[in-house]
Design a binder for these strands. Sequence first.
DNA 1: TTAACTAGAATAAATCATACATAATGTTGT
DNA 2: ACAACATTATGTATGATTTATTCTAGTTAA
Lengths: 266, 266
Amino acid sequence: MDAVTASIGQGKQDPSAGDGATSSLKDRIARDLGQRILAGTYAQHALLPTEAELCVIYGASRTALRDALLTLSAKGLIEARKRAGTRVRVSSEWNRLDAQVLEWMRDIEPDLDFVRGLIEARLVIEPAAAQLAAKMATSGDLAVIEAAYEAMRIAPEDDLAACLDADVRFHTAILRASRNPVFANLGNMLAAALSFSFRLTTSATANYQQTLSAHGDVLEAIRMRRVDDAHDQMKALIGIASNDLLAVARKGRHQQPAAAAKADTS
Amino acid sequence: MDAVTASIGQGKQDPSAGDGATSSLKDRIARDLGQRILAGTYAQHALLPTEAELCVIYGASRTALRDALLTLSAKGLIEARKRAGTRVRVSSEWNRLDAQVLEWMRDIEPDLDFVRGLIEARLVIEPAAAQLAAKMATSGDLAVIEAAYEAMRIAPEDDLAACLDADVRFHTAILRASRNPVFANLGNMLAAALSFSFRLTTSATANYQQTLSAHGDVLEAIRMRRVDDAHDQMKALIGIASNDLLAVARKGRHQQPAAAAKADTS
DNA sequence: TTAACTAGAATAAATCATACATAATGTTGT
DNA sequence: ACAACATTATGTATGATTTATTCTAGTTAA
């Protein structure tokens, strides 16, 4: 039992954390190694310690450790070769849109280039999804979107977690309502992007009402089947947040949590 | 050694197939199981056979088999729970933009809903990427795009593999040139979409020259830094192919290989 | 009788430990 | 320079043990 062993969560802990499912050993190792790779602790092209060494480091059996490595391998983070060892792949090969990878990223210092990429992508994809949703959404889809909107409205402004959650649900519901499996699959990306937005944004509370009403406009456009309007409203909505955030990103390094604002983030 | 064992490629075989790297046992099992899941042989929510049974089926050790299951798990295809067994997850949870998953899909009957989704997504993403590329591309990026374009020009019209490869390289290069890591990461999606297009398209050879010149227009717009033009030209280019393909998709079931046309596919 | 709750057995994955196989890589000797 | 050999780290195999969950049966309470 050394430092690292102690650093990864042990067995059954804080059940309030995340999904509630107490993660298994291999999951904890995968998460820790994955985060070290994403954060650059293990640099691109660098060799990881050998399996045997990692077993010692994590105090785990080779089975559990290899399970973790295999998970990372499946996500494109590493590549194992006989005799040569296991290498960190170049970041362009990483499966950065993988749900788990995005989730791992949340705990570490964000890669601003990537965050900028996420916003740019949202700015393109979500308006298109909203447009499709206006055309394709079923009544069930609409109900889900509306429910999320209501949740945003009633969420206390100081309860960031609730605001973020409702916001994510709103946008995710629209992606799903587009009835396009590719867009629907990008819900993870969306959630991560929003999560970063909440963390990075500095424009203190600015005008939550404006953001909220922008969400309302999108909902209304979709409900009324105003296809082009849905597109434009969504673009405007994300534009509000992205300008803000891109400004922060441009500034270079990010100044911690900024638990301040919940406005202008989506 | 039973039927299934014989069905998955044995050790070093046809080196012309795919990446050339003779796949390992776990990779072959993962591929086989993955394709069965994608194809619906193992239905959503269905239980897979137990590890022990799968070991018998594939004639492999638990180690290799568990490695395969873990890979599938990492890609969101399955979910293992103690005592309850291993279950196929709902398709919305699948990591369908994963390079390997997309590659597995190529060998099986395509899910037309998903293919339609790919095209719709391309129609949204690639014009945006082209627009960005016109703004951001380095001279190196341009050189790669041009090289791919040249490869498309000199490729014999009857050499579908060469045409597809050059086509993929052209579009991938533009995604990369956008300097957006999210778009760049979608190169796998693009490659898969194009691959399906080549397989499904029926409009016999139509007008390869037209498609080719459309590619040229995109290249020129990017090179000349005509931002909006790049967007529109790319949209037009993909539009040519998508109309074609969506017509096929609408018809319902797809009539095999259709080794006919190489035009109007991108 | 029915409902709910509890203790225990059964099950399948999770983990551990060890051994051997295989393919790169390094090294040595000619 | 080249071939033969030893080395190394991952790949595969096997069996034992642990753990969490589900199923079952048995008990208790309404």
